[in-house]
Design a protein around this nucleic acid. Structure first.
Lengths: 197, 197
DNA sequence: GTCTATAATCCGATAGAC
DNA sequence: GTCTATCGGATTATAGAC
């Protein structure tokens, strides 16, 4: 019979194994409290393999960050797709963000709470990343067609989604009694009251 | 004449010099990107003096964090003092937070954005710190006396202040065109519309 | 209390075999 | 492509003089 023992991953599988392990460790302990040796051990690969695939520690974090931002952007695009109404879009975005927070807390922890600029020096602040720009865009469209009051777009976007983002942080900090999803209606209602015309 | 050259600080002055320097470096480059030697050089003191006063690097960060939280708590208490009305209190809190963000951006950067739990391992999440509890309390009082709709207190507090906190982050990231204070009216109006009864 | 010099450790990255 | 062994450097913390 062919070998039954758990094989060490190789090639693309190895690359993904390293990224997943890095995400776990980075979001649990933080980037600076995680050494390459820690990742090596937890992912059961060699140091050489990590450096072959990523070059250095910072590039590994960057690859992870880009991957997660892309994932988040796709989530938001999907939430908006087929909904022309501003309120519906905003609600769907919050619902999707809440789902992702519950399903992939480490992903959200890393994207939202990690201080990327501490280690990804040349990375722009997360507010200018595409997912956050997309959220602002939805609100701006609402202002243009009259669904939303005519206020400063940054203020409107912060009012619409700021409460939801704080609730996500609270959930990640285990400060909430109930699952995040159970607050969805109230959270959306608050955000929408804040900006609707 | 007595010596005119800039004296090295000693005693309590030294302690405060170290804390101020540490705040600057921590908030600019981050805790892990700042070494004790960096602080030593920037503050023009000796390593020995730093260890004498604080014991170790983590304790220095903790002392700084406690100091800033206390400062923030006092700001919020002062903003509430003499105002019995929920809306007035909330507005005054936001105004004070905006002022502090403009006057002491590094302080806000460190308190809000720094990932304390990465280095202050046993510190509770910031949402359970006294300043944030006080903000929640103001909203809960508003619910009790009918000024605020009867919704989950965490949701209400997040809706009232979440937008303001996001605007502070945007300001710290230099994403806003105008000074933070100029957005105060709109930001408060949004938050209040979100939760008023 | 403050200083300088140094110890002990750990980490990121590389070299070179396979 | 993947591995192990190791280097060079930086960092925290201590020792001991003053």
């Amino acid at each position: 019979m062919s070998q039954e023992s758990p094989k060490r991953p190789r090639g693309t599988a190895l690359r993904e194994q390293v990224m997943q392990t890095a995400l776990e460790l980075f979001s649990d302990r933080g980037y600076f409290n995680t050494s390459i040796h820690d990742i090596r051990r937890a992912a059961d690969v060699s140091i050489g393999a990590i450096y072959h695939h990523f070059g250095n520690k910072e590039a590994l974090a960057k690859a992870l960050y880009d991957d997660l931002l892309m994932h988040m952007e796709r989530d938001i695009d999907e939430a908006c797709f087929g909904r022309g109404n501003c309120a519906d879009r905003c609600r769907a975005i919050i619902a999707r963000l809440f789902e992702s927070t519950a399903e992939s807390p480490r992903m959200m922890q890393f994207v939202l709470l990690a201080q990327h600029r501490e280690f990804l020096r040349d990375e722009p602040p997360i507010c200018s990343s595409r997912p956050f720009q997309a959220m602002k865009q939805v609100v701006e469209d609402g202002i243009r067609n009259g669904d939303v009051r005519a206020i400063e777009p940054w203020v409107a976007a912060s009012a619409m989604f700021g409460g939801a983002l704080r609730m996500m942080q609270l959930s990640l900090d285990n400060a909430l009694e109930r699952p995040l999803a159970t607050y969805l209606d109230e959270v959306f209602e608050c955000g929408w009251r804040a900006i609707r015309s």
